[in-house]
Each structure stands twice: as structure tokens, then as C-alpha cells.
Design a binder for these strands. Structure first.
Length: 672
RNA sequence: GGUCCGAUAGCUCAGUCGGUAGAGCAAAUGGCUUUUAACCAUUGGGUCCCAGGUUCGAGUCCUGGUCGGAUCACCA
């Protein structure tokens, strides 16, 4: 693949490679010059005259905290935080605008100075006008104080030569967003903020481009997602409208959850769950990391072993989805990006891994929406000798503990709801359908009305629907079920003649119940299973707000799960729904190789009939099962969606650092 | 793919009825220097997404397009 520039604007370099021309953009095309970049370039040149190398290779930080001192680490460091608290107490006793008594401040400053000099580094969060400026490590902010004539410049000559005469000149060549390292002692200002009195200043790196707006950060969703680095910079520079408590303030600022890994890292940022205030981008991804690491720890504490199975697979199976295709040149074979690790993990159960997990990416070549990204992270794990009920218990505990570790409690605010992860309700699909769908014009009447207006709706009064519907035999059957004298019936047409029903009708409970029983009594079970699941999806799924395990799935749509011992049409399978989204899917794993073979064959015939997402037969998996797999239960948990719920984000793109987007046509486009 | 909405300074946005292109932040210059979104003064900065049309005159109205967002469809 070559990068081809689509918008030639000035002279370019051209390279000829493999019969193709590659046009390379100039630096100025990538970083378009304007008054701001030119000012920064000018400053950079002047700095080079003063310090030599403008991009030194390292800055050695102090180790007051035990490791290299980061800004947020230093603020959290007990000695510093205690003094901050002490100062906050003193200030609490003062009147508005009154300054703390000099002797109190001097005593505190003496203690801070006794800690010794600190050497810290970070990015300037504001333009360096005046003596005070904050540095950030991306999470916290620490103020530094550079007083003319009181600090020296460290030259980047490899010998750390000090230059006192040019320090102030150099300071004025430093811009908003540049990186500097400072060496100095800690003190508190009159306003009570712990700061570094700089004695030595070293320039570390230039920001050639201007920083995002300090009040708003980056708001254009395209830049936020495409240039996440700018979004993250913006979130670390951003000044929150409600000023946070002062450094080292009360527990309101440094929420304590009992372990050092609490998400609240910086006293300059509000606590993660503060009164519904939105998390910064950085905090979202800190929390994401937190959730993932707590899940890993929980699993490992319970004896699970982490494995990595192929991402490039000769068969795309283990789930119902369209795969990405690629080609391996040396082997000259087609490969698919995996849609699920499921069958590989169960091979490992066959091989003797009784508890095994994989936490990694899956790829599905499907639409992009607020809850779908082409690649997404799934935690999948299997436990030998466990059935679906044991798995639900375990999953419930895993969620409860991970959510608590990541957020400090079991209840999270999501939109206008509170979601409680302390308990997960269990409800059969049948109950779910009966409990929610016959509220005709109830809470979801409006939703249905919207669908009716917004789509191609054909009512039963319109005879033309019959022809359209005729292409799917099962629909005709369904129409017969639902048909009832005088009951209006609406059919929503979907693409490729895949149908779902939206029913806005009356007195159907009895009939649905009958049909359900018919389904359950049907020895083949193939006729209605998928339609019932579709009913559930269309009518119930979006109504489930609190964590709920929907259990008792039709077997026909569950080709890898064991049937229930009580009812051969029902699979021992569950899905976890929260806020209308499927978050997890688990079941008792089918381990009878012959039955698994037959289920695959059924799937293949569905495929023949045009269902592109029906599962593909995996011969080697049948062979693996034939060596014997213990009874086992497994589950896949959609990490991105869970993170959405725990960070109050309404789009999966907000919890993925670099979500997929169209290529940036302004810069370059892919061409073969 | 359908529908709706949007695109104006580096960032966040305003721009009335069609009549010389605006603010805050950021930048430059000077002042101030224990500030808390620092402040004061001055200055520079625009392909108003692109193309076409209507008009004496278009950021504004019309048509087409590009890009983005929301929503619906798709995603068992």
C-alpha cells in the first residue's frame, strides 16, 4: 500500500518504487505554517543559540516518592499531601482574601524545604507569562515559580553546564505546551498551593503547534477521536469550570477507596464520581485500564491462566458475524481476522487448561454505531466442570468487584439512571418478553410509533406486503401466528429480506403464550426459535436498564451451547444486558462432538440459505472435542461497552483511544 | 444507504432583514511580577468547506458536492 496524496498544493518529492509513484508531503504540508507556528519556530531557534540541543535525551527526576517523581505522584506523596492538608486547615480558618500569618507559612515552608530539592518535568499548561506556571504530567498539575535572577538555565550540552545570565531570556522563549524540567525546593504560596521554587531550569522539548483551548479543550468529535493525543493534551490542560479543592485538600478531592490504586490520582482533578461531573478523556482511559487490570487480577486470583490464541485464522467461526479477510503471501492462503477466540480457548480446555482466559481484540466487518466498532475488546474465559449457573454467579462477582475497584462503589451514574452492579437479576427470555412487551402504548409506545413513522411500514391492510414478505417463509408462518381478527399488524421491512416484527396490537398474551408452548413442544425447534429471539431483541432488549441475565435462549440460535436438561429446545445460555446493550454472553459449552458436528451442519445449511452470519464448520474443532472436553462453562464480556457504562460515555468511540474513522482525505488516502 | 443538523481566525464560538468579517482564549510587542481562567495597553491573524446560481451586492438566499455529527436501517 502506498500513501497517495490527494490534494497536491506545492512541489513534492517523488519516489519511484515498484512501478508506482509515491508522493511525499513536505513538512509544511503536514504542519501548515501560521503566525503561531512561526513564533514557536523563532523561539526554538533562539533557544538553540542559548542551550545548544533543543531536544535533549533525558532528564533525571528526583526520587522523593521512591521512584522517579512524577507530578501526580509527588502531589499524592504523603509528606507533601500532609503539608497541603495542614495549609488547607490554616486557610479554612481565614476570612475571604486574608493571607495566612507569615510565621505559620514560614513553618510550613521550612518543613517543605527540609524534604530536599525535587527534580520534576512536565508540559507547561499555560503560556509562561509571569513567574507562575503549571506543569502537567498528563494527569496532575504542579505549579512552578520562576523568579527573574533566582534560577539558572541548564544547558543541553551533555555536561549540564549552568548559565545564570541567560536564564530569563530562555524562559521567555518557552511556549505554552513545551516540556521543561526543573530543579528546586517546595513551598506554599499565599493562596496555599504547593509549588516548586525553581533554582534550575532545563528545556526538554518544543511544542510546534498551539495548544487546545484551555477552557473547552477539543470539542470537535472528529479531532477528538482522530487526534486523540490533542484531546488528551486538552484534557490535561483544561481548566474545570468548578475549581477543585486546593492541593492536598480534604477527602472531597482525594477520594479514598482503601487501596493505593484508587482512580483519583491528582488532587488537581475532581474525584472520578464527583456529583456527575464528566470525566476527562484521560480519566476515562485511566478507568478503562483500571477495570481491565482488576478483571485480570480477579481471574488470576481464581486460578485462571491468560493465553493468546490466533488473531489471523483460516476460518472465521465461533460467533455469528462477517469477518475481515486478508491474504498470506508466503502460504498463499486466505486468512480471516478472528471474530471470536471461542473455539481456540475450548481447544485449550480439551488440552487440560481447566481455567483459561483471553482478553484481547476481535474483529467484525459490520456497521459502526454507538455500540459497535470494527475491532473491540472482549474478555473471554472458560471454566471446566462449571455450568451456566455457576458461570452467572462467577460473572456477577467478577463484575461487582471490578466495578467497585474501578469506581469506588457498585452504583454508577449513567445518563439519568443509576446502574447498580451489586446484583444481577435473572430472567428467562420468555418472562422478559411477557413482562415487557404488552404494554402496548406504554412507555415504549412512543418508540414503536417512531419506528413506524421512520421506516417503510406496511400494514396488514395493505395487500402488497404479502409479495414482499413471501421471500421469507418463516415470516408467513409468523403472520399466521399473530393474525387475529381486527388486530392491526405492522411489519417492519429490513434490508435483505430479514424481518422483525413490531407488534402494536391487543390481547395477544394468550396467543403468544400458545405459540411459545408450540415452539417448546416442537421437536425440531428450528421453526420459531430465531423469531422468538428477534421478538426479544426488538421489543425487550432496549428496555432492560439494570444488569440482567436473560436466560433460556432458544437452542437453535445457540449452536455452541448445551441444551437444557429439562427442555431440549432451550439452551443453557445467558446474555447480560445493561442499559439496553448486550454486555456479555455465556453458556454451558457443548462438548459432545457428534452433536456439535450436527449443529455446525445446521448452521452451514442456514448459510446456504443466505444467512451470511451462520457459523462455519470447523473440522479441527470437532476433532479436538472428540479427544474429550470436560463439562465447562464459558463467557465473553464486551469490555468496551462495560467501560462505556462505567464512564458515562454514550459512544463506544469515546472509550476507544483510536476508533476507526474514514481516512483523512486532507492529508492522504490509501490506494492500491 | 434514508432523514435531520452542522462546517466562520490556531482553539471555542457569535454574526440580526442580503450591505466593509466579530468576541474570548491562543500568538506578537510593551508594562506588571506570590498569580489561581493572572491583569493592563497595543498589534498581527480569515479560501466564511468546495463549485455553480440568484442579486448592484452573498458568511447570509438557491442548487450540486465534500467532510463531520445525530438518528434510523445494518450489527443472531
Amino acid at each position: 500500500m502506498l500513501r497517495i496524496i490527494s490534494t497536491p498544493r506545492s512541489e513534492r518529492f517523488s519516489l519511484r518504487t515498484e512501478r508506482k509513484y509515491m508522493s511525499i508531503p513536505t513538512f509544511e504540508e503536514i504542519i501548515e505554517p501560521n503566525d503561531q507556528t512561526e513564533a514557536r519556530a523563532e523561539h526554538l531557534n533562539k533557544l538553540r543559540e542559548l542551550i545548544g540541543n533543543a531536544y535533549p535525551n533525558k532528564f533525571v527526576r528526583s526520587k522523593l516518592t521512591g521512584a522517579d517523581d512524577t507530578i501526580s505522584g509527588l502531589l499524592k506523596h504523603s509528606a507533601v499531601a500532609e503539608i497541603g492538608d495542614e495549609m488547607a486547615e490554616v486557610r479554612a480558618g481565614l476570612k475571604e482574601g486574608e493571607r495566612p500569618p507569615a510565621e505559620v507559612k514560614d513553618a510550613i515552608n521550612a518543613k517543605l524545604k527540609a524534604l530536599g530539592n525535587v527534580r520534576i518535568a512536565g508540559r507547561l499548561t499555560t503560556p509562561p507569562r509571569g513567574n507562575f506556571v503549571h506543569l502537567t504530567d498528563g494527569i496532575g498539575k504542579l505549579q512552578i515559580y520562576c523568579k527573574k535572577g533566582q534560577f539558572a538555565l541548564i544547558k543541553n550540552d551533555g555536561k549540564d553546564t549552568l548559565d545564570e545570565g541567560n536564564a530569563w531570556t530562555a524562559w521567555q522563549m518557552i511556549d505554552h505546551g513545551d516540556f521543561v524540567g526543573v530543579d528546586g525546593y517546595l513551598f506554599v504560596t499565599n493562596t496555599g498551593e504547593v509549588s516548586v521554587h525553581v533554582e534550575k531550569l532545563q528545556f526538554l522539548a518544543k511544542a510546534m503547534l498551539p495548544m487546545p483551548d484551555k477552557m473547552h479543550g477539543i470539542e470537535d468529535p472528529e479531532i477528538k477521536q482522530r487526534q486523540r493525543y490533542v484531546d488528551l493534551i486538552g484534557s490535561s490542560l483544561q481548566v474545570k469550570a468548578e475549581p477543585p479543592a486546593l492541593a492536598g485538600g480534604t477527602n472531597a478531592a482525594g477520594k479514598v477507596s482503601g487501596d493505593d490504586e484508587s482512580v483519583s490520582i491528582s488532587t488537581s482533578l475532581p474525584p472520578a464520581d464527583a456529583g456527575g461531573s464528566a470525566l476527562t478523556t484521560r480519566e476515562v482511559f485511566e478507568r478503562r485500564a483500571k477495570i481491565i487490570s482488576s478483571m485480570r487480577r480477579f481471574l488470576e486470583d481464581h486460578g485462571y491462566v491468560e493465553v493468546e490464541t490466533p488473531m489471523l485464522t483460516p476460518k472465521a467461526t465461533g460467533a455469528a458475524a462477517k469477518p475481515f479477510e486478508t491474504h498470506h503471501n508466503a502460504l498463499d492462503i486466505k486468512l480471516y481476522a478472528r471474530i471470536a477466540p471461542e473455539l481456540y480457548l475450548k481447544r485449550l480446555v480439551v488440552g487440560g487448561f481447566e481455567k483459561v482466559y483471553e482478553l484481547n481484540r476481535n474483529f467484525r466487518n459490520e456497521g459502526i454505531s454507538y455500540k459497535h466498532n470494527p475491532e473491540f475488546t472482549m474478555l473471554e474465559f472458560y471454566c471446566a466442570y462449571m455450568d451456566v449457573n455457576g458461570m452467572m454467579d462467577f460473572c456477577e462477582e467478577l463484575l461487582r468487584q471490578s466495578v467497585e475497584k474501578a469506581t469506588g462503589g457498585s452504583v454508577v451514574n449513567y445518563e439519568r439512571n443509576k446502574i447498580d452492579f451489586a446484583h444481577v437479576r435473572r430472567l428467562s427470555m420468555k418472562q422478559a418478553v411477557f413482562e415487557t412487551r404488552f404494554t402496548r402504548y406504554g412507555p415504549y409506545g412512543g418508540h414503536l410509533e417512531g419506528i413506524l413513522q421512520g421506516n417503510n411500514i406496511i400494514s396488514s391492510q395493505d395487500s402488497s406486503w404479502i409479495e414482499d414478505a413471501g421471500t421469507v417463509g418463516s415470516l408467513v408462518k409468523m403472520m399466521e401466528w399473530w393474525k387475529q381478527d381486527g388486530a392491526p399488524l405492522y411489519v417492519r421491512l429490513k434490508a435483505d429480506h430479514n424481518f422483525a416484527l413490531d407488534l402494536v396490537t391487543r390481547d395477544l398474551e394468550v396467543e403468544v403464550l400458545q405459540k411459545w408452548e408450540e415452539f417448546e413442544g416442537d421437536s425440531i425447534g428450528r421453526e420459531y426459535g430465531s423469531e422468538i429471539a428477534m421478538l426479544f431483541e426488538e421489543l425487550v432488549e432496549h428496555t432492560i436498564m439494570q444488569p440482567t441475565f436473560i436466560i433460556d435462549f432458544p437452542k437453535v440460535i445457540s449452536p455452541l451451547s448445551k441444551a437444557s436438561p429439562e427442555n431440549p429446545q432451550i439452551a443453557e445460555r445467558f446474555e447480560l444486558f445493561i442499559n439496553g446493550m448486550e454486555v456479555a454472553n455465556g453458556f454451558s459449552e457443548l462438548n459432545d462432538p457428534k452433536e456439535q458436528y450436527e449443529r455446525f451442519v445446521d448452521q452451514m445449511s442456514e448459510r446456504e440459505r443466505g444467512d451470511e452470519e451462520a457459523m462455519v464448520l470447523d473440522e479441527d474443532y470437532i476433532r479436538a472435542l472428540s479427544y474429550g472436553m470436560p463439562p465447562a462453562a464459558g463467557i465473553g464480556i464486551g469490555i468496551d461497552r462495560l467501560v462505556m457504562l462505567l464512564t458515562n460515555k454514550h459512544s463506544i468511540r469515546d472509550v476507544i483511544l483510536f476508533p476507526h474513522m474514514r481516512p483523512e482525505t486532507k492529508l492522504s488516502a490509501e490506494k492500491d
